[in-house]
Computed example of a mutant assay.
Amino acid sequence: MTIHRRHLIGSGLFALAAGAASPARARSEEERTASPSRPVGGLELAHLADAPSTPTGLAISRGGRVFVMMPRFTAKVPFTVGEVMPDGSVRPYPDAESNRPDAKRPQASLFHVPNGVFDRDDTLWLLDAALPEGKGAPVPGGAKLVQIDLATNRIVRVVPLEAGIGPTSSLNDLRVGRLNGRPVAYITDQGQDGKGAILAVDLANGLVLRRLAEHASTKTQTGVVKFVEQRPVMQTQGDGPPQSPKGGANGIALSPNGARLYYAPLMARHLYAVGTAALLDPAASDAMVAATVEDLGEKGMTGGLTTDSKDRVYLSLQEQNAVGRRDPDGRIEVIAADPRLVWADTFWITPERWLYISAAQVNRRPEFNAGQDLSKPPYAILRMRIDADPVDGV
Rank of each mutant, 00 (worst) to 15 (best):
R100T: 14
G142M: 05
P114T: 10
Y93P: 01
V90Y: 09
L131F: 14
N153S: 15
V66W: 14
R91N: 02
D128P: 04
R120D: 10
M69Q: 07
Y93H: 07
G142Q: 10
P138L: 11
G136R: 12
R105W: 00
I60N: 06
G64M: 11
N99K: 12
R65T: 06
N99V: 03
K76T: 05
D121V: 05
L150G: 08
S98Q: 11
N99W: 04
R62H: 15
L127D: 03
D95K: 09
S89A: 14
P114H: 10
D121N: 11
V90F: 05
Y93V: 04
G134P: 08
A129Q: 09
K76W: 09
A137C: 04
A151Q: 13
A151Y: 10
T74S: 15
T152M: 04
L131H: 14
A129T: 09
F118K: 15
F67R: 07
S89N: 12
F111I: 03
P138C: 05
R72I: 02
I60L: 14
L150N: 09
S61G: 10
R120N: 04
V68N: 13
F79I: 02
D87P: 03
D95A: 03
V113N: 05
G141F: 11
R72L: 01
D102C: 06
S89V: 02
A75S: 15
Q147A: 02
F79H: 08
R65E: 13
P71F: 11
T152F: 08
K76H: 14
V146L: 06
F79S: 02
V139R: 11
K104N: 02
A59Q: 08
Q147N: 11
P94M: 13
K144I: 02
F67Y: 14
G88W: 10
E133F: 01
A96V: 08
S109H: 15
L127A: 12
G141L: 06
P78E: 07
T152C: 06
V66G: 04
I60D: 08
K104D: 05
D119F: 05
D128S: 02
A130E: 09
P92Q: 09
D149Q: 04
K104G: 13
D102V: 10
N99F: 01
Q107C: 03
E83Q: 15
S98N: 00
T80Y: 00
T74C: 06
G134H: 14
R62W: 08
P94Q: 13
L126E: 03
W125R: 13
M85W: 13
A108I: 09
R120Y: 03
V68H: 14
Q107P: 01
P71D: 03
F73N: 13
G142F: 05
V68R: 15
G136Q: 12
D95G: 05
P78D: 01
V81Q: 06
G63T: 14
L131N: 10
V90A: 09
D122Q: 10
L145Y: 07
M69P: 09
F118W: 11
F118H: 12
P138Q: 09
A103D: 11
R72A: 08
G134L: 05
N153G: 14
E83L: 00
G63I: 05
D95F: 04
D149P: 09
